[in-house]
Every structure is written in structure tokens, then in C-alpha cells.
Write a protein that binds this DNA or RNA. Structure first.
Length: 997
RNA sequence: GCCGACUUAGCUCAGUGGUAGAGCACUCGCCUCACACGCGAUAGGCCAGAAGUUCAAAUCUUCUAGUCGGCACCA
């Protein structure tokens, strides 16, 4: 079999995905083992209208790697995929398109038509991201694909809403909310991003104080006080100049336009400057309203003037003060941030910024503008459209989070769950956020989303129900209108791990809602199984949504970015505990952010994003996945094309190593038995069913393989993907390709075959293969096959492409759970380490040999000996080491490009020789006529210096009585051993140096 | 302001108490019959700075500086 000379990723990428999917390899049902443990991951649902970016590619790679690894280990595996309806961004996108195509606004066409348009849009473009997920090779179960707006998930949303409402956790109330004047919707705190304003100013406004409070006796904050006749600004401004100063109270504000809605001025009760003013009245300029001066601890005397204008309808802190003092709440803005009628004739209709200028101008005209200072201020912005948020008094739906929050905190405190990887700093961020959690604003003034299941009758009565019919029954009338608003997208996302698995809160619910919290501790699978059996759902042939819930919930691990720990992770924990009684996942892997090559965040505005699809085309999916998994440590990292390139090269290396093995595979085939000679077998041929004794290299590579397998499994268990990648990379490239293949090459290649057209040799045209050759070919194919399996979770396409071509592969190699599936590497058994195959003596012997070869190559390179020039190598070593070199003579000669090997106890070579030392041998290469004595002196001196530095360091340590006395004795012994070795080597090198004179 | 992370070879990053590692780039030699997306051999680091703990510190503690995040923001 002949492979192309270079690996073309496109071929492999096109060859396998369809078959994998069509054969049901991705579905958990492929697992035939009724007792198989489950492993499940739910994808963080990407936005339905979105496209794949590097962050997705990274987290998808990690999830798929884990899934494929677990699947190969025989777990009944579900990787659940789906998309999110993404309320705001989708609505924005469709609105923009509507404007472009038809020059219409959503209001022009109405709610129903608009929603219809969004669905059309979703059906048209919603598949983009799922296509990209296929392209990336994710082994997700497409038969269970979910969408947050589909019927079952919507049902779950309504169920949760109704239950929370019924227990009083969801309420409708009037609060100061984050209002986006452009999207005209409320936003949760998490959808607001604080940014520094470019030219923030602090305006100092002078408010006149009425000497005679008119009409105010008590009852601060009653609306009757507005517009009191008889006191107007001009009267006050006309006062004697000398008395004027004491008649004003100056307040500082960054938003002067809100003064039109002021209903009080507050000072600190302890502030000596203002104590006497408390209870007096201010005549509010531009409005001629009278407002009280009140005392509140909230005011900090040191800041600004120590007096604060209070606008309860336009500032959250002012709102609270307003509540405490029973102040009037005067809304002076419309929902598009223009001023409304209440702002007065002169201002109504003005945009907030125009109103600001006008207010400041008017104050200046009146001589009431004390000063304007530059002031650094951070302003809230809409995360989506970047518009400055206006805090606005508004009636919305809220969820009380206290109870759910406490359950989540308890779970973290008592069980350290969910467990974050890395734990620092995410556990703390998660915990602190929960501790300071406020009520969640869940209504949104959008049309795209889950419409709030609340209905109103003509009198304003509220009926919350699962269906309109239910609501009508409650109300006793059919004349109900549903709440116009929809729910925050994250409300449905919060239910994702169980709503996607079939939870709708009906009688088939995992646990009764009332028992949910108290049963939180019992979170293990055996219990699930028991419940499943009890409820008659154990029959695997029945695939009902509920059996999915029983089989796969809780999920095992969540992989996500740190930006949605609070937005999403915490809410899944809270709703999961509340409605299923179980935590939704055990572990949470927080991956880093992919930055551009300059360490900057990728963003659309900076246009520095890197499209994963471009990288796929350029370097291949497998290489991209390796680069991503190889970088994932939870820390941000800068993107380097060079890194992917190096894994592209690695893919090609794998391709070519396989190509070599296939070119010489005649007579051999993958055979796991061939791995089973252990080091005992080396001295007992009867134990091996192979012809001949396993040689050093064979014992060595098997040992290396097992060590690698062990370390890779450990790395994946602890989610150290980069560690696993490094291990496999080095095993394959350094151990397998650079040493093992080179070592056994002569044995494997049938050199009698040189006349035939290589690779096209027909069966039977080769000379008879020896049993030794067949054994060697079988072993190298088997090692290769094991390496491909290890690589498969990371590089699915390449490994499948090659594995299918290996002789001897069949579904016999599958994990026991998949024996009847058609043959595929993705269902093979993931390698397990066998400690008895770890052979330290083979490894140390092999090290002696490779060190020897390297030293000789160094002599060749540094003495400028042409590659074609053969020479004799003299080696002096003790008897046991001599044996090792003798046994590997052929390989040493070949790899060091030498002609003869002279092995003895003492070097006997001419003066004109280049020399070197290894840990257990002396080397000399006679170079009569080729040696440059100065160069050789330099080489030897160099070696002496290097070893000497280490020796003196050790000397210092060993002569320190404290070290010798207190350090562990094995440590001291090891250092002494090394010291002796160095001393001997240096002595030898000095001798070599002298012999040159 | 508070909290946190990061600072290791030219670049991007591994490395949680015991002789500093990788990939890429660089230098030198090679088209050696799997692979030039390759092979071989070098070179290159007072592990940001300071102090401390320890027989021993890149690694633990504290402080400083720089970079980047998060949170909270007093009008």
C-alpha cells in the first residue's frame, strides 16, 4: 500500500465525518454494554446566528477530546449539542436586516410578522454554526440537537417560571433598572459593561434655599408641594447680594439633566456645615418646584460639596434614599432617553445630552452654575450596542435569588462543588458573586424570546400559568392579554443541562420539586439507576426524554470561558439544584482567552480576529485542534500561526511514519499479542509467541509506550490537555520516529527487494521474509496503532484515515462495549498502561546507546567530517556495558555512520583521535589526516568546562555539612554518585587533552 | 479604590523545594532509499527586582515595579 508523500488534511476531513455520524458512532446507543458508566457533556450553546470563533474552537476541542477519550474507554458517552436563541443579538441582527431590505422597523410590521422573520432567519442561517461544528470534527450526537426556543425547552421555561412565581420567588415590581435607550429594553447587571467616559465633567449647581418654607410643614416628599405659588426663583435671586451666599446649597452632579427630576437634596446628618439646613426647602431652578433638604447617612460629606441632589426615578442610590424618605419619584425621560413632559415645556423632546447642555446653559444664565470640573467617570454601556445605559424607573419581572443562592453557596462550602479547573481564581469569583447576588431582572422588552407566561385581565389582575387556558381558568374569563415582554435569554440557558435532556417538570421529573433542595446531597449515579429502575425506565430500548435525564444528568464536566461563570455557570447550579435536586455538573473547566499575536483581545472593532475556518484550510483541522489543546491551561495565550504550523508538520510526520510502516508491512499486521513479551521473556523465548528474542529497542519502545500511556491518561484525568499533547508529541516524534524506526529500519526493510519498484512490489515478488522480519513488522505496526489510538481524541481525522489502512485492524480492536460496530479507530480501546511492561533496565541501556551515538555524531559535526566518510569507533567500557554496545553494534554503526566498532576495556588509539565521554563509556574516533588539533583541544576544553561547572556546584553542596546532615540521604547519595561520575569524566577528558601534546 | 493573574531562551509558552525545558526563529552540516512540513549537531536564560523562610527557592512568604484582567464605584 502506498500513501501520498505528504499528508493532505482535506482528504481525511472529507472521508470520515459522514460515516461516523451515519453509523451512529456519536450516539450513546452505540454502546452495547448495559452496565457502562455514563459520561456526558453539554455544549455551551452558541448563538443561533453566530459563527465559530477561536474561543469556540478551543472549548469545542477540549470537550471533544474528553468525549472521544471517554468513549474509547467504554463509557456510554453523550456530547449534547444545541444552539441558543440569543434574544437581544438575534433581534438586533434581524432588525438591521429588515431596515436594509425593506426600510421598515419591527414596529412597522408588528410582533407576529417580526417573530416570523426571525424564525425564517434562524432557519436560513442557524445552520452555519452547526456546519462549522461538523467541520471541526466534534463527536456530538446530532439526533439530540437542541434549540432553546423549541417546544420542550420552552415548556421547561414556563414550568420553572410558574413554580417560582407560585412560591413567591418571581415578582413584578417597579425598580431602577439598566435601560438601553437604543434597544429599548431593560438589561441585567451582567449585560452592562462599565467603561470610562472620555470627557467626564462634574457640574456644581447652586440650588436656592427658601428662607420661608412655604406650605411645607411636615410629610416630606408629598406631591402636594410641587408648584407652590408665591415663591419663585426671581424673588430669591433678587435678594440682597450680601445675604445671597448663605441662601444657596451647591450640589455636584455628572448628569445635570436629571435635576429636572430632583425631589430632594440630601446631606449627611452629622455634617456641621449643613445641619441647620435639614428640613428647609429648596426652590428647584428651571422647575419652580419646592423640594426638601433631607438627612441621610448615605451622603459622604467629603465628596463634592457634601450635598447630593436626589433623583429617585433616575438613579439606583437615589431611589433607595427615596424609598427611605418616602420621596416623590418623578420620571423625566422617555424610553429613548429624550426628556418627557414632566421635564417641563422647555426641555421635553430634547435628547438627554441636548437637555444637559441646555440645563447647564440655563444655570449659567441664572448665575447658578458655580463651576465645571473635569472628572473621571465610568459609565455603564449596553454590552450589545454600546449605548450608554440610562438608569430608569421601570416596572419589570424579577427573581429573588436568596434561597437558590444559599443552596449554591452551601454546595461550594461543603462539597467544593462545582470544582473549578483551575480553581484559582474562579472559585473565589464565583463565590463572591453569589454572596453579593441581587434580584435578577428577567423581563426584556423584546419580541424574540420566551414570552412571559403572565396574563392580565381588564382590571389589571395578573394570572401566571403554563398555558393561556390555565390562566383563563384562574381568571374566570377569556378576556386576557399576555405580558408583552420576553424572558432574559439566560433564563432559558440556566436550565440547559436538564431541559435539553428532557426535563419539563411533569410527573416524570427526577425528583419532586418540594424535595429538590433537601435531597441535594444524594448526587450519585447509582441512585439515579435505582430511581430509573423503580420508575420502569431502565429499558434501554425506550428512548424517552426522561430516560435521557436519568442516564446523563448530572453531566460530568462543563467547559467554558470565564466571562460566563456568573452569567451562566452559577445560574445552572442554582436552577439545577432547585429543580432537579442535583448539581448539573461535577467539574467546570475554565479555558483561557485566545488573544491575537500581539496579546490583544480579538474583537470585531479591532478587526484582529482569526477565523478558525481559515486556519482549518491552511493547516488542517487536526493540527488546529492540537495547537488549541496544546495551549489550554486556563491562562490567556497569544495566537501563533507558527504553532499550528508545527502541528501541521507533526501531522505530516505521523503520516510519513505510517507510510514507512505500510511500505514495509507485507507479512506483518497489528497484533496486540506482540506487545506482550515482557523483560522476563527476553530470557525465556518460550514465553514469546514471536520468533526470536525481543531486542533492546523493542523492549525500550514498549516501555516508553507504557510510560506515555500512563502519563497521558493521568494528564487527561486532571484536564491537563497541553501536558497530554506534549507527551504524545515527544513519544511519537522523538522516541518512535527518531530512534525506534531508525533502530529497526534495517530489520524491517526487505533489502533484497531493492530491484523492484519500491512500494509497488506485488505480493509474492519479494524474497521470502524471515520470521524475525515478520515479528519486527508486526511489532512496529502495533506500536504505531497504539500511538494512533492515543492521538485519536486530539487528531480524529488523520488517525482514522491512517488506522483504516493498517493491516490487521478490525472491530476486534474495539473496546468491549462496541464489538458489533463497524470498524473505526474511534471505538477502539484507549490504551491502558501495563506497569509490567515498563522496563527501566531497557531504558537505561538504550540511553547508553543513544548517548554514544549522539557523542559520535557530535564529533563528526564539530570536526567537519563529511557524512559519507566512514570511520572506526573505539569504545572503552566495563564488561556489562560492552554487552549492550555489542548487542546494538549494527544500529550504532548505521546511525553513527561508522564502519567498525572496536570495543574493549581500554582505549588504544593513535594520538590523532577525537574523543568524548559518556556516562559509562569512553569514545575515540581515529581521524588520521582529518583531525584539527586546535579544534579538538577546544572541543575537549569545552566539555571539561561544562562538566567542571556542574562538578563545582555539587562540590559546594556536598561540602556543606548542613546539606549532608539534613537533606534526605538518597538525595545526598545521588549527588555523590553524580559527583564521582563527573570526576571520572573530567579526569578522562584531561587525559585526552594531554595525549594531544 | 479593592481583588486577582501574569512577568522563565529572540518570540509563544511548559515547568507547585533538589543539576533550567519545548515549539518556532537563529548558527553549522546534510536532498542518508517514510518525511526538506525532513535529518543531524550546536548556540542561546543571575527564571522582573528586593528581602525573608529553608541544608536547598524559578517554585513558598512579604514588599516593589511593569502588564493584563475582574469587581466596586460617592452624587
Amino acid at each position: 500500500m502506498e500513501l501520498e508523500k505528504a499528508f493532505d488534511p482535506r482528504v481525511a476531513e472529507e472521508n470520515h465525518y459522514k460515516r461516523w455520524e451515519a453509523s451512529g458512532f456519536f450516539a450513546p446507543e452505540i454502546n452495547e454494554n448495559p452496565d457502562a458508566e455514563a459520561f456526558s457533556i453539554v455544549i455551551p450553546p452558541p448563538n443561533v446566528t453566530g459563527t465559530l470563533h477561536m474561543g469556540h474552537a478551543l472549548q469545542h476541542t477540549l470537550m471533544d477530546t474528553l468525549t472521544r477519550w471517554k468513549r474509547m474507554q467504554g463509557y456510554k458517552t453523550l456530547f449534547l449539542v444545541g444552539v441558543d436563541h440569543a434574544g437581544i443579538s438575534t433581534q438586533l441582527m434581524v432588525t438591521r436586516q429588515l431596515k436594509k431590505d425593506e426600510h421598515k422597523t419591527p414596529q412597522d410590521i408588528g410582533r407576529e410578522a417580526f417573530t416570523e422573520k426571525v424564525w425564517e432567519w434562524k432557519n436560513k442561517f442557524g445552520g452555519v454554526i452547526t456546519q462549522q461544528i461538523r467541520k471541526a470534527g466534534l463527536s456530538v450526537d446530532w439526533s439530540r440537537e437542541r434549540f432553546t426556543m423549541e417546544e420542550n425547552l420552552s415548556k421547561a421555561v414556563r414550568e420553572v417560571f410558574v413554580r417560582l412565581f407560585e412560591e413567591g420567588s418571581i415578582y413584578r415590581g417597579t425598580r431602577i433598572v439598566n435601560w438601553c435607550p437604543r434597544d429599548k429594553t431593560v438589561l441585567s447587571d451582567l449585560e452592562v459593561k462599565e467603561e470610562k467616559a472620555k470627557d467626564g465633567k462634574l457640574y456644581y449647581l447652586k440650588y436656592p434655599i427658601l428662607s420661608e418654607p412655604s406650605a411645607i410643614a411636615d410629610g416630606l416628599g408629598k406631591s402636594s408641594r410641587f408648584r407652590v405659588p408665591g415663591s419663585d426663583l426671581n424673588t430669591i435671586l433678587d435678594l440682597e447680594p450680601g445675604t445671597r451666599n448663605s441662601e444657596f446649597l451647591t450640589v455636584a452632579t455628572t448628569r445635570p439633566e436629571t435635576m429636572l427630576g430632583d425631589t430632594a437634596v440630601a446631606v449627611n446628618p452629622e455634617d456641621e456645615r449643613y445641619k441647620h439646613l435639614i428640613g428647609k426647602t429648596i426652590l428647584l431652578p428651571l422647575t419652580n418646584r419646592e423640594i426638601p433638604i433631607i438627612a441621610d447617612d448615605y451622603v459622604e460629606s467629603e465628596f463634592g460639596t457634601g450635598a447630593v441632589k436626589i433623583t429617585p426615578a433616575h438613579d439606583p442610590n437615589d431611589w433607595e434614599i427615596g424609598q427611605r424618605h418616602n420621596l416623590e419619584m418623578l420620571v423625566v425621560m422617555n424610553d429613548d432617553a429624550t426628556m418627557n413632559d414632566a421635564a417641563g415645556e422647555d426641555f421635553k423632546g430634547l435628547d438627554r445630552y441636548a437637555a444637559r447642555e441646555k440645563v447647564v446653559g440655563e444655570f449659567e444664565k441664572l448665575g447658578l452654575l458655580e463651576k465645571i470640573e473635569d472628572y473621571e467617570v465610568t459609565l455603564p454601556h449596553c454590552e450589545r450596542c454600546k449605548t450608554v445605559i440610562e438608569p430608569l424607573l421601570s416596572e419589570q419581572w424579577f427573581v429573588k435569588m436568596d434561597e437558590m443562592r444559599d443552596v449554591a453557596l452551601k454546595l461550594m462550602r461543603e462539597e467544593n462543588s462545582p470544582r473549578f479547573f483551575p480553581e484559582v481564581p474562579h472559585k473565589k469569583v464565583y463565590t463572591m458573586w453569589l454572596e453579593n447576588l441581587k434580584d435578577w431582572t428577567i423581563s426584556r422588552q423584546l419580541w424574540w424570546g420566551h414570552q412571559i407566561p403572565a396574563w392580565y385581565d381588564a382590571k389589571g389582575g395578573i394570572y401566571v400559568a403554563r398555558t393561556k387556558q390555565e390562566a383563563c381558568e384562574q381568571a374566570g374569563t377569556n378576556e386576557l392579554t399576555q405580558d408583552e415582554d420576553v424572558l432574559d435569554t439566560w433564563f432559558s440557558s440556566a436550565l440547559w443541562p436538564f431541559s435539553t435532556l428532557g426535563w419539563t417538570g411533569g410527573a416524570d421529573t427526577l425528583v419532586r420539586p418540594d424535595a429538590a433542595v433537601s435531597e441535594s446531597a444524594g448526587n450519585n449515579r447509582s441512585e439515579v439507576v435505582r430511581q430509573e429502575a423503580a420508575s420502569g425506565l431502565a429499558d434501554k430500548s425506550v428512548r424517552s426524554p426522561t430516560s435521557d435525564l436519568n442516564a446523563f444528568y448530572p453531566t460530568d464536566v462543563l467547559v467554558t470561558g470565564r466571562d460566563i461563570i456568573r452569567l451562566w455557570v452559577s445560574r445552572m447550579v442554582m436552577t439545577g439544584m432547585k429543580f432537579t435536586g442535583k448539581k448539573p455538573f461535577d467539574d467546570v473547566i475554565i479555558h483561557g482567552t485566545v488573544l491575537d499575536k500581539n496579546g490583544q483581545r480579538m474583537s470585531k472593532t479591532k478587526n484582529n480576529g482569526i477565523d478558525p475556518l481559515d486556519v482549518f484550510v491552511k493547516f488542517g483541522v487536526d493540527a488546529t485542534r492540537m495547537a488549541l489543546a496544546g495551549s489550554a491551561t486556563g491562562i490567556d495565550f497569544a495566537w501563533r500561526d507558527e504553532k499550528v504550523e508545527s502541528f501541521r508538520n507533526f501531522a505530516n510526520k505521523i503520516w510519513n511514519a505510517t507510510r514507512f510502516c505500510l511500505m514495509n508491512s507485507e507479512g506483518g499486521s497489528v497484533d496486540l499479542q506482540s506487545l506482550e513479551f515482557s523483560h522476563q521473556a527476553a530470557s525465556d523465548e518460550v514465553l514469546t509467541r514471536n520468533v526470536g528474542t525481543p531486542n533492546l529497542a523493542d523492549r525500550w519502545i514498549i516501555s516508553r509506550l507504557n510510560k506515555t500511556v500512563k502519563a497521558v491518561n493521568y494528564a487527561l484525568e486532571t484536564y491537563q490537555f497541553h501536558e497530554a499533547v506534549q507527551l504524545i508529541y515527544h513519544f511519537f516524534w522523538d522516541d518512535f520516529c527518531d530512534w525506534y524506526i531508525e533502530f529497526v529500519k534495517d530489520e524491517i526493510v526487505n533489502f533484497n527487494d531493492t530491484d523492484t519498484d519500491r512500494g509497488n512490489a506485488k505480493i509474492g515478488s519479494e524474497p521470502e521474509l524471515t520470521g524475525k522480519q515478520i515479528r519486527a513488522r508486526t511489532l512496529i505496526l502495533t506500536i504505531l496503532e497504539q500511538a494512533l489510538r492515543m492521538l485519536h481524541p486530539f487528531m480524529p481525522f488523520l488517525t482514522e484515515e491512517l488506522w483504516q489502512k493498517l493491516p490487521g485492524t478490525s472491530n476486534d480492536l474495539h473496546n468491549a462495549a462496541y464489538k458489533s460496530a463497524e470498524k473505526t479507530i474511534m471505538l477502539t480501546d484507549f490504551p491502558k498502561a501495563n506497569d509490567s511492561m515498563i522496563d527501566e533496565s531497557a531504558e537505561s541501556a538504550m540511553n547508553s546507546v543513544t548517548e554514544l551515538i549522539t557523542k559520535v555524531r557530535n564529533i563528526r559535526a564539530e570536526m567537519n567530517i563529511k557524512p559519507g566518510e566512514k570511520f572506526t569507533i573505539h569504545i572503552a567500557a566495563e564488561a556489562s556495558v560492552q554487552e549492550v554496545f555489542k548487542a546494538s553494534e549494527a544500529q550504532i554503526l548505521k546511525l553513527a555512520r561508522a564502519e567498525t566498532l572496536v570495543i574493549s576495556h581500554r582505549l588504544q588509539v593513535p594520538k590523532a583521535s577525537a574523543k568524548a565521554v559518556t556516562a559509562n563509556a569512553e569514545i575515540a574516533v581515529p581521524l588520521e589526516g582529518l583531525i584539527d588539533f586546535d579544534k579538538e583541544r577546544g572541543r575537549l576544553t569545552n566539555q571539561i568546562t561544562k562538566l567542571g561547572e556542574e562538578k563545582s556546584r555539587l562540590d559546594g553542596q556536598l561540602s556543606n555539612a548542613n546539606f549532608v546532615g539534613r537533606a534526605p540521604s538518597e538525595k545526598v547519595d545521588a549527588l555523590r554518585g553524580r559527583f564521582a561520575e563527573l570526576s571520572a569524566q573530567i579526569k578522562t577528558l584531561h587525559g585526552n587533552l594531554r595525549s594531544l601534546d
